[in-house]
Every structure is written in structure tokens, then in C-alpha cells.
Computed example of a mutant assay.
Amino acid sequence: MLGKGSFGTVYKGALYKGKKLVAVKRLEKLVEEGEREFRAEMRAIGRTHHKNLVRLLGYCAEGSKRLLVYEFMSNGSLADVLFRGIRRPDWDERVRIALDVARGILYLHEECKAPIIHCDIKPQNILMDEFWTAKISDFGLAKLLMPDQTRTFTIVRGTRGYLAPEWQKNTPISVKADVYSYGIVLLEIIVGGEEVDKTTLENMVKVGLWCIQDEPILRPSMKSVVLMLEGITDISVPLCPTNTSM
């Protein structure tokens, strides 16, 4: 067993007579949705391909059973790096990790055939490969939008502490829910950094605060987030968020 989360247990496995290692997640708290919708979402996610996404290699959906098969990541999660002292990244690495994650979410939101809301962005779902590249994982709660759709109604998905305020307001969810979660993760990434570049630190804090604005309309798109982190666009002084994430 590699780990256990709020929605399932992850096991280490092997394919092709042990030649290819994989991670297998067994979903234990199922999202209440139909078989057809689950399969459609998994097929869409299975077609994604980006250097900052963990590849979903396959899935099983038989009755109430849900298994997701991912490529194996050898260096654990961002949570291990940030909170468990597995490896202490320097400032430049923290900036790179923040951009890795932002680019992965941008791909899901704007570069897929149909936009995908991940719904559970958090350090535990960001894995590190053998080169310490950050990759977004765990699409068990992801929500697929139709090409002409910008928001959708769904039951609460995600993890306390990273949930956007709109999850509890019974209002439609958009990609801005992921932006909020990313803002929390971004602020966690920069906390504890040593020998920081003060200008970069200030800019990253501003981006994080814009991402966690209470109202979705005030949050930037992930494309804007990437451009701000890359220093291509200016960052205005953010409003002070009033909500505390659940």
C-alpha cells in the first residue's frame, strides 16, 4: 500500500510481468453519479497528455467498484516534500513547482477538448517524478464540462481546507473552484522557503491572494496565473479575502 486518502487507498502494482510499475487507486467513497457519466469522464481524462499531469492508464468500473490505474511516481507527493521533510526544496525549486502545478491546471481548464475541473487540488494529489517535476494526480473526483458549458451543479467534492466557498452555497461550480484550491497550495509552497527573492515572493503572495478571493469572478484564470508567475503580466494589489476555507 502506498497511501490512504479520504476517498480511497492507493496500491503499488506492476504490469507486463513486472516491467512497468503503476499506482492503483481503489475509490472507497464513491461520488454519486451514473455509470455512463463516470465512464465518459474517465475516457476524457485518459486522453489528456501533459508533462505536469500524471497519466491515467486505465480504469475499472464494475457495479460499485471503481479502480483507477496511474503511472507510478517515484518521489512521493508534494505533501511529503512540504510537510514531512522528505526533501527540502530551495527557493528556485519552489517557484518551479508552483509553475508546474499551474501549467497542469491550465491544461485541464483551457487546453483539453472539453474543460476538466479537477475538484481536489491539494499537495497530496501533486506527485513528484524521478526528476522532481510536479505532476497533478488523482482524477477520481474530476468533473467534465461540455464544450459550451462553463459551470455545473454537482455534490461537494474535494478536501476541507482547499474547498472554494461556493461548494457550500449550492451554486454552480466552475474552473474557478480549482483556482481557489491552487491559491491555497501556492501559499503553502512559498511558506518556509529560505534565501528567497523578495520580489518573487511578494508577487507569489499576491497571486495566491487573488486566487483565494471569495467571489469566483474576482479570481484570475489559470492562464493569467501562469503569466503572472512568469513575470509577463503585472500583478495588482489583491483585495483582502474574508472567507476561511472549510
Rank of each mutant, 00 (worst) to 15 (best):
V31D: 01
G193L: 11
E215L: 15
I184E: 03
A177F: 00
S236R: 12
E166D: 08
E110A: 13
G5S: 03
E33C: 05
E93V: 14
L229H: 12
R157V: 12
S77M: 06
T159M: 04
P123E: 06
A177Y: 02
G161F: 08
V101Q: 05
M42K: 00
Q124F: 12
D138S: 06
H49M: 10
M1L: 13
Q168R: 09
T199M: 14
K113V: 15
I232H: 06
G58M: 07
S64H: 09
C240K: 15
F153M: 11
G46L: 10
I235F: 09
V24H: 01
L108G: 03
T242P: 03
I232Q: 12
G161K: 02
K4L: 08
S6A: 15
A164L: 08
F83K: 09
A79I: 04
F83Q: 08
T152M: 02
H50E: 04
L239V: 07
D138C: 09
L141Y: 05
V196M: 14
R43F: 04
V81S: 12
A164R: 04
G46W: 06
G183N: 05
K143Y: 05
H109T: 05
Q149R: 03
Q213D: 03
E110G: 12
K176H: 00
G8P: 10
T171W: 02
E111F: 14
R47S: 05
L108E: 01
E110K: 06
G192Q: 04
G76V: 07
S245C: 07
L68V: 00
K198Q: 14
T200A: 10
E111V: 07
M204K: 11
M146Y: 08
H50T: 10
Q124C: 14
E202D: 14
I126R: 04
I217P: 00
L57W: 05
M128E: 04
L127W: 10
M146P: 02
L201H: 09
N203I: 13
G18K: 01
Y180F: 15
I121P: 03
M204H: 06
R160K: 09
W91D: 12
V225H: 12
P147W: 08
R219A: 07
G46F: 04
T48R: 07
Y180S: 12
R88F: 15
L21Y: 09
K20P: 03
L144M: 04
P241Y: 03
K198Y: 10
P165C: 09
I86S: 14
D120P: 06
E188L: 13
E32F: 02
K4M: 10
V185C: 11
R84F: 13
I136R: 11
V175H: 00
H50A: 11
D90R: 08
N75G: 14
E62V: 01
E188A: 13
N170D: 09
A23H: 00
W132S: 08
L127P: 13
M42G: 00
G183S: 08
G18W: 05
A134M: 14
S221M: 06
K65E: 13
N170K: 13
V101E: 07
V95A: 06
A134V: 14
L229G: 14
N125F: 15
S64V: 10
K169I: 01
R87K: 13
L145C: 01
L144H: 01
E28D: 00
L106M: 11
E35M: 04
A142K: 04
L141C: 07
F38K: 01
N75F: 15
